[in-house]
Structure formats: structure tokens, C-alpha cells
Design a protein around this nucleic acid. Sequence first.
DNA 1: GCCAACGTTGGC
DNA 2: GCCAACGTTGGC
Length: 152
Amino acid sequence: MRYWLMKTEPSVVGIDHVLAMKNQTVDWWGVRNYQARNFMRDQMQVGDKVFFYHSSCPEPGIIGLAEVVKKAYPDRTQFDPSSPYSDPKATAENPRWVNVDVRVVKKTRLIGLDELRAHPELANMRVLQRGNRLSITPVDPAEWKFITEKLL
DNA sequence: GCCAACGTTGGC
DNA sequence: GCCAACGTTGGC
């Protein structure tokens, strides 16, 4: 089992939106970065644990715990010509983009970037690195343990 | 809105 | 395969 951090913009799909969905589960559509896609396609398994992270918003940070509940399958938005995520090079036979399904386990207090940065134990987290833009990043088991046991 | 960082595109 | 131009991300 692996641990991940997945970013989402709360103005598009925030944790409260997902909590209001059926089974508190969302298909993680819209990833258009190959490295992030490959994490979903090649490494994510049902049961993997996820930090739910709000980005591009007034208070960026971890806001919940979630888990992977369905393995990667083609992202529906790539086939939708009206979607900004449409990809004309993607076909049903050769989909280019995939997503997993993610279920929110619980909403937590907000652990903001400043707070995360304040702990030396978390200094190597990808999301804290300068210039980091990757929307899905692996989380070290020790980092998961520290955050869930010491900060929450 | 700014801008640093970095990914993608496309001409050569 | 190089790399300049361009586009996007995301904190501030």
C-alpha cells in the first residue's frame, strides 16, 4: 500500500463537494501531466491512502484524508469536445488520460503550508519543494505517520 | 496580478 | 535530439 498527496482546486472540486457526492467518491478527472498520470495508471491501487490537498486558493494545505477506491480507467473528460480537458488526440481505442476514483474518508482541520514547512520531519515532502507543480505526489510512510499521528 | 519554475511544442 | 518559445501551475 502506498501513500499519496493529491491536489485539487476547491473552486472546482473541493472536499465539501466530494463529501456531498454519492459514497463521498469522485473520479479524479482533469490530470493532464504525464508524470501524475503515470502514478495513477501504474502505481495506484485500491486501498492506497491519500492526503486531500486544496491548492490555488486562499488557504492551501491538507484538508482531509481519502483513499483510492477504484483503479485507473480512462478519464471521461478527454472525449468531451465541450470540455476544456478535451484531447483531440485521445480515442476510445487509445485513451491518453486516466483517473482513479477517490473516496474522502474524513475532512480534517486545515494543515496549511506554513505549518507543514515548520516541521523538519516533513522537509522532504514533494509538495513543499520549491517550484513543485506536480498535482499528484508520493508521500513517504514516515511522513504520513507523522502528519496523521502528530498533527491531526 | 505577478512571476518563478518547469512541462510541452515544434522548427530545425 | 536540441532548444527557444510558449503555456501552465500555484504560492504569494
